[in-house]
């Protein structure tokens, strides 16, 4: 699930002129078994993750686990504190006054779920990872501005990049680079 392209397998980086060109190139290449693809773009493009076969994000589950954990443990803590650890009789009201336990329970549900959301994104994206071999290509900076990039990584036994380079050019790539090993 985490970041691909971390090993030194031969990889090409191609830049496309627009989101549409990138999407059609990804569609044309997706069914090849011996390459793996990843795209880079300055904003999320609808449907590209499905085209590249990334499946769906497990974030909802992670956040739900965090929320349940936060809520249940806060209610448990309140119950334990007010009923067992430090019972105080206030105007004869029940020690287990569940309505008053609801606000902190809600707050902790949201708090722990949000912390899980942040840490979950970082974990699934393999971040922080301050350097990456794609950063060696100067042009790749445009991925965060106006560049639409596709990486093609040879995962099979075939290590020959030339035919793939031609194929990318055929699909309308503006330029193609070989990603250096780091």
């Amino acid at each position: 699930m985490s970041a691909s392209h971390d090993d030194a397998s031969p990889t090409l980086l191609a830049r496309f002129a627009s989101a549409d060109d990138l999407r059609s190139a990804a569609q044309a290449l997706r069914d090849n078994a011996d390459i793996s693809l990843e795209a880079y773009c300055p904003f999320p493009i609808e449907g590209l993750a499905e085209t590249l076969g990334h499946g769906s994000s497990p974030m909802p589950k992670i956040i739900a686990i965090g929320g349940v954990l936060g809520g249940v443990s806060m209610y448990g803590l309140e119950y334990w504190i007010n009923v067992y650890a430090y019972p105080l009789n206030i105007g004869g009201r029940p020690l287990h006054s569940w309505p008053s336990f609801v606000p902190p329970t809600f707050e902790l549900t949201v708090l722990i779920a949000s912390i899980f959301a942040l840490l979950g994104v970082l974990y699934l994206c393999g971040l922080p990872q301050l350097h990456h071999r794609l950063f060696e290509i100067d042009e790749f900076r445009r991925a965060s501005c106006d560049g639409f990039f596709l990486t093609l990584e040879l995962s099979g036994a075939d290590r020959e990049l030339r035919p793939w380079r031609d194929r990318l050019n055929e699909l309308g790539a503006i330029s193609v680079w070989e990603v250096p090993d780091v």
Partner: peptide, 30 residues
């Protein structure tokens, strides 16, 4: 943190961001 704008990054980020918005909505009211 070394964000690379990859489609995987965007996918997880976008999902988390939307859910966070859903969580923050009752929070604002609360």
């Amino acid at each position: 943190l070394g964000w690379r704008n990859s489609v995987q990054h965007w996918m997880h980020y976008r999902t988390a961001y939307l859910i966070l918005a859903g969580l923050a909505t009752p929070l604002v009211i609360s």
